[in-house]
Every structure is written in C-alpha cells, then in structure tokens.
Simulated scan of single mutants.
Amino acid sequence: MATDSLWQEVLNPQARIAVIGECMLELSMDDSLATPQALSATVSYGGDTLNTAIYMSRLGLNVDYVTALGDDSYSEWMIRQWQREGIACGLVHRYRASLPGLYAIENDESGERYFHYWRSQAPVKQLLATAERREALFAELRSYDVIYFSGISLSLFKDHELDALFAFLKTYCDRGGVLAFDSNFRPKQWPEFERARHWFSKAYQLSRIALPTLDDELCLYPKQSSDGAIERLKLGKRKELIIKKGAEGCLALWLDQCRDCPIDETVSLVDTTAAGDSFNAAYIAARCQGQDPVQACKAAQKLAAQVVQHKGAILPLDKMPG
C-alpha cells in the first residue's frame, strides 16, 4: 500500500508505468513546398499521452503504452517507432479493418498550435467497447505501479465505459496503485462541458498526482477566477497537485506544503506542442528518482523549456537536457 508521504515503495526508478491514450498519424504542413495545385506535409505521429510516454522512456522509466491501432502498415510503422524509443507495446491492441486517427497541425507566428482531426472511427475508441475487452485490459493493468492518462484519454470513451474504468481505478488505488492525471482539456472533444467536469472530478478524486494546466481549468469553468480554480482543485483528499501556469511557472501543493515555482530562464518560443506532455513526463520521472516535488518541478520546467524552442512534439535526442 502506498503511503501518503512520498509513496516511495511505488514511486521508484523501477516502477512500471502504464500510459493510456491515443496516438494518431500527424500531418505537419510545409508552406515552403506548397504549390498552386497541392499542399505539402510531413507525415509523423503524435498524441499527448504518447508524447509523455516517449519522454518518460528517454528519462529512464519503464513505460507501456496502452492504446488500439489497426492492422495496417501505418499502424505497424508507428509501433516500430515507439519501440525504438524504448516503449513497451504489449498492450497496443490491433483491430482488423481499422486505420489510426489522423490530424493536421498548424502553428501561427507566436508558436501557438491549431489542430484539424479525422478520428471518429479511430480504433482506440473500441478499446473498452465490450465487457470482455475491459476485463482483459483491467487484469493486465493491475500489475502496474503507476497508471497515467489525460482528459483527452477520457474523451475517447462512452459513459458506461468510463463507469467501468473508474470502478477498476478505485480498486486499483485502494490497493496502493498511483494514478497520475493531466486534465488536458480540449473543448472540441467535449461538446458538453458538464460531462467533462463530471469525469475530470472523478479523476482528481482518485489521483495521487494531478497535473492540471490552469488555463484549461479556466476554460472548463469560465465563471471561476484563477484563485477559485486552485481552491476547487485542492478539494477532497489531499493529493500531490502541480498546477501549470504557462510562462508564470507552476504551483506545487503536497502534504502541508505549497510552493510557487517560477521559471528560471527566458525562452524563445517556437512551438508549444508537447510543452505540458514533456513537463508531466519529467515531473514523474524526477519523483520516481527520489526528487521532492519542487525539485521535480524544476526538472520538468527545464525539459519543457527545451521542447518549446523546437518544432514538433519530440526533441531530437541530442537536444534532450542533460
């Protein structure tokens, strides 16, 4: 059973981490190669939880990615790339006659990103579709020390599937498993905000490590002030709560501690893709390696600062901070 101090018996360098979510094919538009007859784009892959899994693996953690793909060559290619990053793919389910989701990404001059999705039939939406699939997956997940997912992960599933997932997670946490959750709220994926509030609240109630972004919380609760959002996030059983505030740094709350963690360096913003995803990975990695929450926030800010100074979600290996 994990303790309420630092949960050292669970958060250690050998911890087994399951990351649940969706990864899609990514089209990055290249205006320099466009012609009057055609656009030009580079094909890659991306997804918030997959980004986090890659950075976790690069930082020395034992990570399994939990998702579903098709039986096509694009899905096979993605799995090979993830395995080259050191991610275990034994829980990547493959469904016949399916294709992975697809999105196109654009960046404006400030580095802010915009997405266009083709994902309504993505195979990951079938991951919890039957009782048999749910029971088989939950049986596998019981052996993991940490389960990580995001609000985007939750948006993939129907309410009865989420009911089953949270029933499993309640038992998992009661037995000492650590749940880590990043809200990562995307309005287009939650047409009914009240539904998102319901499921996010359940996730926060169970989470040992909560990693919300303040701007996302203010979007989800538009009538709430920043102070009000922070007080709401603090409700319930005391958790390790790291509130990301963009250029203002982050706020770390744990046990009886509350520390403001400003960003120490000025960065030239190029692309904000995966800023939060990389932060989350580095934070959890630092905690597993014995650093306290403030030290972990500094490590997370260092990686995120490097990520936003480069195009794309994933840094070249030689650009990873030492």
Rank of each mutant, 00 (worst) to 15 (best):
M1P: 06
P13K: 10
V19Q: 00
G21Y: 04
M24C: 03
M24D: 09
S28T: 15
T35H: 01
S44R: 10
Y45R: 12
G46D: 05
R58I: 05
G60I: 10
G60H: 13
T67V: 02
S73A: 15
Y74P: 09
S75E: 02
W77K: 13
R80Q: 11
Q83M: 14
R96S: 13
G101I: 10
G101C: 06
L102R: 01
L128Y: 06
R133C: 01
A139G: 04
R142G: 04
S143H: 10
D145P: 07
Y148K: 01
G151M: 02
I152F: 07
S153A: 14
K158I: 06
D159H: 09
L162A: 02
L169Y: 00
L179R: 01
F185I: 00
F185Q: 00
P191D: 06
F193K: 14
A203W: 02
Y204S: 06
T213H: 03
C219Q: 15
Q224K: 13
L233P: 03
G246L: 04
C250M: 11
C258I: 12
D264G: 08
E265Q: 15
S268E: 15
D271C: 06
A285T: 15
Q295A: 14
K298G: 02
V308S: 01
Q309W: 12
P316N: 08
M320P: 06
P321W: 08
